[in-house]
């Protein structure tokens, strides 16, 4: 079973969960365009009930970084890995 972050990305991007990993980024996932990035931020904020700073948002260039940002925000590791 994949983790919650990856499955959230798969849902918003409309791709198969198995095609994504921590290294997935806008450079290697064509569905991850600027419009998708906007939907991803809205979804992450709602699902994890957090508010991301613009600094965080600009940093989040891979799924792996998104996970570490969430851990920094106090989301427990168990919840996202």
């Amino acid at each position: 079973m994949v983790d919650r972050v990856t499955s959230l990305f798969a849902g918003v991007l409309g791709v198969d969960e198995k095609s994504l990993n921590d290294a997935s980024s806008p450079d290697n996932v064509s569905e991850w365009d600027s419009l998708a990035a906007m939907h991803l931020v809205a979804e992450i904020e709602e699902v994890f009930s957090i508010e991301l700073s613009t600094r965080d948002i600009m940093r989040m260039q891979t799924i792996g970084i998104v996970k570490s940002v969430l851990i920094e925000k106090g989301i427990s590791e168990r919840d996202i890995t």
Binding site: M38, A42, E45, E46, S53, I57
Partner: peptide, 13 residues
């Protein structure tokens, strides 16, 4: 304001 500057979209979800 975050969404406005990031996406030219001024409103909360």
């Amino acid at each position: 304001a975050r969404k406005w500057y990031m996406y030219r979209q001024p409103y909360r979800e």
